[in-house]
Amino acid sequence: MTNRAPRGALVAMAVGAALISTSAVFVKWTSVGPTASAFWRMGLAGILLLAWLARPKVRAGWKPSRRVLGLLLAAAVFFAIDLWMWHRSILYVGVGLATLLGNFQVFALAGYGALVLGERGGWRLWAGLLLALAGLALLLAPGWSGFDARFRLGIAFGLGTAVAYGAFLIAFRAGQAQRGSLSNEAMLWWLCLFSATLLLGMTLLGDEKLRPAGAADWGALLAYALIAQVFGWLVIGRVMPKLQAGVLGLCLLLQPLLSYVWDWLLFDAHLGAVELCGLGLSLAGIFLGLARAQSTREAGDGAEAKAAPEVGLRSGAPADGHRD
């Protein structure tokens, strides 16, 4: 790849990240419960993908091996937990902050790399972590004494979803590495099937409202499934490997940044000068972590073991590994 990012890939990544940044908005717009909206996201996406997989050219490579099926099931468990926590964080603390907290998954993955794979973090990771934590402190400290228990629980859920999403990425990437002729679309369909089944059970156990109330609910849920799941995974997942680490990191930052824009435009959320400074520091820290993770992956391309797990958009996708 040349030093300059392909213009088409760069535009596609930027547009895709902007669209995916609206994901949390749809969670707030629907009247169903937080787990129920996660179920509809995965269930509707599975239906849309099934139509894609029914095409003769795609139909052949859809059945995974037992090992890959097990890894996809493990990934689905972590992803269901991730969505369960993230949707509650969105409702408790708002679209912008919940999305920013979820993007701390880059540091959860770095912890896995250090503890399990024996990787060295490097200065980018440590500087990024310190910046992100300092920024988060500035975002929360001014109003912390006035936050109620529900808001503080939302912060915990937001950080928890970063850990769960990191675990999902590890399991899913392990499945990708062993998938053989299984297509990325088929992997996503199996993930949707397993996740939707788990989330349906969690919704019923939690006695949440499951049935959408009307056209507005159905519209929000369909848009959520199409943008966050189908579009995000199939389009952005294929573009990510074509971009260099620094460019990709900047594009990925559009998601948490624009989520604050939607929070301000649609839900009247406001940040003061201190909070804005905190947001900037957190984004800078996440950027350093993303750039470090992508550089680690690029350096390990073609190696078997110690390549870091792929970092994906908070509600988007790990790359599919193709460089077509």
Rank of each mutant, 00 (worst) to 15 (best):
A220D: 02
I170G: 09
K63E: 04
A317I: 06
A156V: 13
P56Y: 01
S21L: 04
A284G: 12
A156F: 15
T22I: 06
R67I: 11
S31M: 06
V106Y: 00
A174M: 13
A76M: 07
F26Y: 14
G135L: 13
M85W: 15
S183V: 07
A171R: 03
L258D: 11
G280I: 09
I236S: 00
S181H: 13
R323K: 14
L109R: 01
D217R: 05
V68K: 06
Q255N: 12
L248M: 13
L276Y: 03
K57I: 13
V32L: 01
E119D: 09
V77K: 02
L222K: 02
T161C: 15
N103I: 01
N103S: 09
E275R: 03
D263N: 09
S183E: 06
A80Q: 06
A245M: 08
V311D: 04
L204A: 13
D324W: 10
G122H: 12
M85Q: 09
V68G: 06
Y92E: 13
A220W: 06
A293S: 15
G16E: 04
Y165E: 11
A308L: 08
T99W: 00
W262H: 12
A54R: 13
F107N: 06
L188F: 09
S181V: 08
G102M: 05
L10M: 15
G128F: 13
V235K: 03
L199C: 10
P34T: 11
A319N: 14
P241W: 01
V95R: 07
V77L: 13
G201F: 13
R7V: 12
A164T: 14
A36W: 03
G312I: 10
W190D: 13
W233T: 03
G113T: 07
A60F: 00
L313H: 15
L153Q: 07
R238V: 02
P241H: 02
I81W: 05
R59I: 10
G160A: 07
V58S: 02
G118R: 12
L73N: 03
L125F: 15
L221M: 04
D268R: 12
S315H: 11
D217Q: 05
R7H: 03
C277V: 14
A76T: 11
G232W: 05
W144L: 06
G249E: 11
W218N: 03
R55G: 08
A127D: 00
Y260S: 01
M85E: 05
A167I: 04
A223H: 14
L290S: 05
P309A: 01
L131A: 11
A134I: 09
A108M: 10
L254I: 06
